[in-house]
Amino acid sequence: MGAEPVLAVEGLRVTFPAPGGAAVRAVDGLDLAVAAGETVGIVGESGSGKSAAMLAVMGLLPGRARVGGSVRFRGEELLGRPEKELRRLRGGKLAMVFQDPGSSLNPVLTVGRQIAEAVRAHQGGSRGDARRRAVELLAAVGVPSPATAVDRHPHELSGGMRQRVLIATAVANDPEVLILDEATTALDVTVQAQVLELVASIQARTGCAVLLVSHDLGVVAGLADRVAVVYAGRVVEHGPVDDVLGAPVHPYTRALLDCLPRATAGPRVRLTPIAGQPPSPAALPAGCPFHPRCPAAVTGPGGPCDARVPAPVAVAPGHEAACHFVAPASRDRRGAGAAP
């Protein structure tokens, strides 16, 4: 981690009121930090709270959501700031790209207008200048013939091109933090490869911090420096990408890797599914949220898994896992993982 983080999230909680009084705990104490020039991958299954966390960082959650914890950008707390100040940050220093390239763009405006508006909202300047900048940006994200593309409407562009336009809008004001929430999930693999390539080159050029949210471990493996594995609204394991995906210690990370079929590498073996279903955030299990599905869980009298929430334990420098049975680094049992 070394460098001072640009964005630091600590103990983030997002709760939605649900009919019948019960609360939906979408994010339940999530910690995360990303430094300039660094890419942090956030992986987890659908419903694990990745998007809710990112929206909380951006201050984009609907009003009825309750947010707790801390989100610091360059050391300054963002939670609880007035909307006006947040608006100045959003699209400026903090930018986000969503999954659905269709609904994130306004269908009645040309893409040039939409990029130009993003530019002028933060940098001012004349319409002409903003338009020239839009052409530049479209060229930078690899949209062919940008001079004519600025005058197109979103529906005239393919999904991959729309995603490039969204990325162009997001990087228009040289953000320091770029959040990509499943930005390539709706795209085909060959187009996904193009877009990931683009993100990497933008980051190499601008040195921004990237938060890459995906349910696809493969996408994260290629691009991220560090990975955070999210389960039931919490980070259960995080660390350098090689450690977390190469030598995982948390039972969930291991199980997740075991149940993935591989496209090219390794022998074809029978997959090991994880028992049961991801928990409903409206009824999270007590103790370790993974215990109902965990092959290594020790529950019942004396067993800690259904009684206490495991705290993160450092298994190696910068590599932490939240499991009662992970051996701490001092004993140097890195990679030994869940004991029982």
Partner: peptide, 9 residues
Amino acid sequence: DAPVEVVPA
């Protein structure tokens, strides 16, 4: 994956 319109289940 719906970015904003997530419905409680």
